[in-house]
Design a protein around this nucleic acid. Structure first.
Length: 504
RNA sequence: GAGACAGUAGCUCAGUCGGUAGAGCAUCUGACUUUUAAUCAGAGGGUCCUGGGUUCGAGCCCCAGCUGUCUCACCA
């Protein structure tokens, strides 16, 4: 923890040494933080360009290279350093007395510490031991590091410090950097697919007077000038559908949403979703869209749709479309049969008893639909391979359109992978009177103590009354998708700065 | 919100039965012009998470607190 929180006046021995070196540079009239250095090469670029340079071979090619010094080996009149840059290659700096001259070499060994950002200019060569190197004729301190790096072999392992001081984590642990690059690639692949299909990326408010679009406890905040209680959004859904009413027939938002709930390996209070709305589409269109988006993300981030996975018994996770589609009823029947029950012989009371025996949450209002959903929740963690669970009961789906063949169900699905919900989608409810009725049922639940129930949103109802075309809507958890692609056990491994309690 | 586990040098970690605080890397000094976890010799570096308690004596035992991790609950 000292790495993170140390009063600036209390310096460790190593920090005092570095401050002394800084002072010594300043005494010599040399800037430790100069304004400019233009590299002409990158570490990865040099490895590409000189891949075939034989060991022991020298070139006359002069390059300017900049990056962080992560390792150093001095040997009398030689000094080997490893320099790392943003392309995340590693190039050896082969500094010698002959190449630098006496003063520059002495200053190098005197002033340069592990962790400093250095610029070097020199020629490219490959050493007899086969290490591609730059032999500098000059060097420039670009940023003196006043704190030491974590240990070179074990790196930084203390998870608390890794999250609080993510910069150290990124410098030290290459796999961490790789994970965030994968996440970024996945998101840009999703953008490319949607942009190519004519979707418009939009931004909607994060400050909501009425939090809607999901069942969740919101964060509260306050606007001074308007003297207004506001909530951080729990979902952008209702605003996005207003845009569809307004004629923006294909929209999406990659959004940060906020839910005032517990923190776990699968939950961060602020998290990233993508929501997509497409007019004149329904939930089966959203299923194929989900498959396209996830496949594109996996291909871009991992090079394919079959990816390594420690949590899967086979060691792999196959995301290749198409994925099976199964109604919630059929899935629950499967579970019940696995337990030795005959689903057709179970009445509501019997199902309720099984629910209680399984340790499930008994719904506030016991109906066939709510018990079905509660039973499903008992077992959903078993769904490892991608599967669409479809046709949710209307009671638990206040924003989804009723099923065309069964008004007690909705045209809704969720995608489960590794026992976790990855996506949630439906044919959007565009019947304003039905929607009003659903809101009122939610409001009644809220009045009887359900803190997460939906409130009646008159502005949204007004928009629906204007007429929303039949629309398919889809939400995908980006953090959870990133977890899959990165084979990460914790959501904190794919969120750069997960929420932690502040240190005093 | 509940339980289990953890916190010792800049980093990674030992620390026996309660009896002077340890190692490796890093740092400092010295040697070395082909090293790459470089090597060799020497040195410095500690609020043992915090606060109480027990004890002649606490890194170690007890209590409380702080922070984190995991599991559970709520949820995506």
């Amino acid at each position: 923890m000292d790495t993170v929180h140390r009063p600036t006046l209390e310096r460790s021995e190593q920090e005092r040494v570095r401050l002394d070196k800084l002072a010594s540079m300043q005494d010599a009239g040399i800037q430790a933080y100069p304004p400019e250095f233009r590299p002409t090469a990158t570490t990865a670029g040099l490895h590409d360009r000189y891949a075939n340079l034989p060991a022991g071979e020298d070139t006359t090619d002069i390059v300017r290279l900049a990056g962080r010094i992560v390792s150093r080996r001095t040997s009398g009149k030689l000094c080997f350093m490893d320099l790392v840059d943003g392309t995340h290659g590693r190039i050896q700096i082969f500094a010698d007395l002959g190449g630098l001259g006496e003063e520059a070499f002495r200053r190098l060994t005197e002033w340069v510490d592990l962790g400093d950002i250095l610029g070097v200019e020199g020629h490219v060569r490959r050493t007899r031991r086969g290490e591609l190197s730059v032999q500098p004729s000059s060097w420039t301190m670009l940023a003196k590091a006043l704190r030491p790096l974590p240990e070179k072999w074990h790196g930084l392992t203390d998870v608390e410090v890794r999250y609080r001081a993510r910069h150290l984590d990124l410098i030290t642990n290459p796999e961490v950097r790789e994970a965030f690059i994968k996440r970024s690639r996945a998101v840009s692949a999703i953008r490319r697919v949607l942009d190519a299909e004519g979707f418009l990326e939009v931004e909607t408010p994060m400050l909501h007077a009425i939090p809607g679009g999901a069942a969740a406890r919101p964060f509260l905040t306050h606007h001074q000038a308007l003297d207004l209680e506001l909530h951080l959004r729990i979902s952008p859904e209702l605003y996005l559908k207003r845009l569809v009413v307004g004629g923006l027939e294909r929209v999406y938002e990659i959004n940060r949403s906020f839910r005032n709930e517990g923190i776990s390996t699968r939950h961060n209070p602020e998290f990233t979703m993508i929501e997509v709305y497409q007019a004149y589409a329904d939930y089966s269109d959203m299923m194929t869209l989900t498959e396209r988006l996830v496949a594109a993300a996996a291909t871009e981030a991992c090079g394919g749709t079959r990816i390594p996975c420690q949590q899967h018994p086979t060691g792999f996770l196959d995301l290749t479309p198409p994925w099976p589609r199964r109604t919630m009823q059929a899935q629950v029947d499967l579970f019940l049969r696995e337990m030795g029950h005959d689903p057709d012989a179970l009445d509501l009371d019997a199902r309720l008893r099984i629910l209680v025996a399984q340790g499930g949450t008994v719904p506030r209002e016991v109906t066939p639909g709510s018990v079905l959903a509660a039973l499903f929740d008992c077992f959903d963690s078993r769904l490892l391979d991608p599967v669409f669970i479809t046709d949710f009961p209307v009671e638990v789906s206040p924003l989804a359109k009723r099923h065309r063949d069964d008004p007690s169900l909705t045209e809704r699905f969720e995608v489960f992978i590794l026992g976790r919900e990855l996506a949630n989608a439906f044919s959007e409810l565009n019947d304003p009177l039905d929607q009003r009725g659903r809101f009122e049922a939610q409001a009644a639940a809220k009045a009887s103590g359900d803190e997460e129930a939906h409130a009646v949103d008159e502005d949204y109802l007004g928009a629906l009354e204007q007429g929303m075309p039949p629309t398919g809507g889809l939400g995908i958890g980006i953090d959870r998708l990133a977890m899959l692609l990165c084979d990460a056990a914790s959501i904190r491994d794919v969120i750069l700065f997960p929420l932690l309690r502040p240190r005093a």
